[in-house]
Design a binder for these strands. Structure first.
Lengths: 193, 193, 193, 193
DNA sequence: GATGAATGAGCCTTCATTCAT
DNA sequence: AATGAATGAAGGCTCATTCAT
């Protein structure tokens, strides 16, 4: 019998339940049921309900950061990297809609209302975009009259909003790949020298 | 002495309290206290706590739509209108940070989890941007190879993210007007033919 | 209709329930039921379950202190006062067995385990005995080779243990008045010069 | 290497933990940790948490009874025996404060609230005092107008209360031996013909 | 015998909502 | 219309106990 990692099991259940009902409307019992464990078991792995959300985020964000990081290690141009970044972003949204929903909605809450939670991983993620912009400016590919700080927020905000609409309208017909292409074109158009 | 509109009084109290503690962490009693009325009084004007949030949004959104609408009535170019739209957006964020926070955080939650709430006002707001883009394309000022649907989400997402960062970091030093200018430049650069 | 003091109502219910099941085995719901109020009502008058026990003690102890204090105001001899003190002690045990049980058992617990609770009222009570002993020594009626501190503890301990046995064995046949007389005789015999 | 008696190991851990936190506030896991065994191990030696407390009491009480019993076997006078009884009582309190605390506080609770527990060992202990009083009356050393039943409770109550104060105030300066002497004097003064 | 992960019943407490005044 | 005391359902969390290893 395969050994199950229960912490991961619970986190994945939580993603599903939180995506479905929202963090505040979901009960710990809901998560336990979804995970197929007893209520109390959750408290063997997480300090409390808040900690479950934070752990969920930290764990998944690490995976995500790892996946995106490989993009920056390559020898490609900044433009190419940005296109790939955008593609990967939408691809991941498509792959795990539940996780996307939790990140979209719950983390915005949590970053404000969970005590003592400084969201370093999210900052790291934004900086991945910043690094690409940096490279582009250094290479002379991107305009230098643009604040990297402002631009990385614009890019992330754009992607995030497009993702939200796709998730909320639940329109699987809509082609996320085309959206990615078009978004890439628009954003890069304003960056290139 | 002017007759006080109690509904508005409660809504403004709610904005403050929800901004401070978040919708789910705020109690109806907190709002009542802030408004200087009894708990039960709130239920004379709102069906329940959810309804208070929705009413809050509807009321304020109407004011906002009104304010933005006047922009579109003028005879200015689409570019000029977009610049003014962006400026007004940041100006309003600066004017009423509490309201901005509630919109940022709580409405995202609620649009998903409040039963039976179809957020028409928000769609109307997005369409204001759409209208500008439309005009720009009709006038031959904006490129026509760009999907208006995608572009309006990109623009709103960018503004929204910049606003969030400004609110969360609570850095009053940061000049929102400069950010508005820069953002206008970037976005318009990708739109102009 | 007579206005009911709900705080007192709940305290009296708590006395009965705590005496019956013990503080730790009793549920707040039990107390609420006994008081004929909703569970939540208890929290309008008491911070939490611990606070209910402490308030109970403080309230009743005040009544008791008042009752005993009148003894000391009189012009009687120390011997007479001590006899009356002992009689009143057993009389009160007999009058309100439930309260006696709670004091006997629960307060011993609580004085050790309820956080930040310094049991001043109990010290005051012990000092009533100390005052009598003082008077007796000043008047030359009681021996002065006896430490008042030790003696007041001996007296209280003796009364307390006799009360406990009477309560626990629940033997209403046993005449508490006779016990009081005998105890008075024994204790005073060791005090008189 | 001596085989460790695990039952005793657990009992001694329980004494420490119960003295520290109280029976109801202490967890079985706390006791297990203190004993250096697994939680489940405790249930190999004790039926449940209540049984642990009762076994603890029975075991220790047997040791205590044994120690006190030797006093009665000697050829000393009742007065001398009572003095030694009192000295040994305070000596044991001093030797094992934790055990004293558990007996003081927890057993009072438990004798009322642990189901089906008739505290025979405590009755035996009280009867040790009764036996001394009996001898004193038979030998013509002690007054016969005093009820042995009442007097043994007075003596135990006095000792018990003095012990409690010493434990609670945690004043190691206070000389228990002196207290023992003084208490002996006082109590015997009321007994001697 | 020993372990300790897992269980799940149970309880304190909160808080949206009601309603007698 | 306004109040705010009272309600009671609901949920996070604890912890004594079990049992597969």
């Amino acid at each position: 019998m395969a050994k199950i990692n229960k912490k991961e099991l619970i986190i994945n259940a939580a993603i599903k339940v939180f995506a479905d009902k929202g963090f505040y409307n979901a009960n710990v019992a809901d998560v336990a049921k979804e995970a197929g464990v007893a209520d109390g078991t959750i408290y063997l792995y997480f300090k409390n309900k808040d900690d479950l959300l934070i752990s969920l985020f930290e764990t998944k964000m690490e995976e995500i950061l790892l996946r995106f990081s490989s993009l920056l290690d390559s020898n490609q141009s900044a433009e190419e990297k940005l296109r790939q970044f955008i593609h990967l972003y939408f691809q991941m949204i498509e792959e795990d809609q539940n996780l996307a929903e939790v990140f979209q909605v719950e983390l915005r809450q949590s970053s404000k209302f969970l005590k003592d939670y400084h969201n370093q991983k999210f900052i790291d993620f934004l900086n991945l975009i910043g690094d690409i912009l940096h490279q582009g400016q250094s290479d002379g590919q991107f305009k230098t009259d643009i604040s990297i700080h402002t631009m990385k927020l614009i890019i992330f905000g754009a992607l995030d909003e497009l993702a939200r609409q796709w998730i909320l309208t639940e329109d699987p017909q809509e082609n996320l790949k085309q959206t990615a292409d078009q978004t890439s074109n628009i954003l890069i158009r304003s960056l290139l020298v």
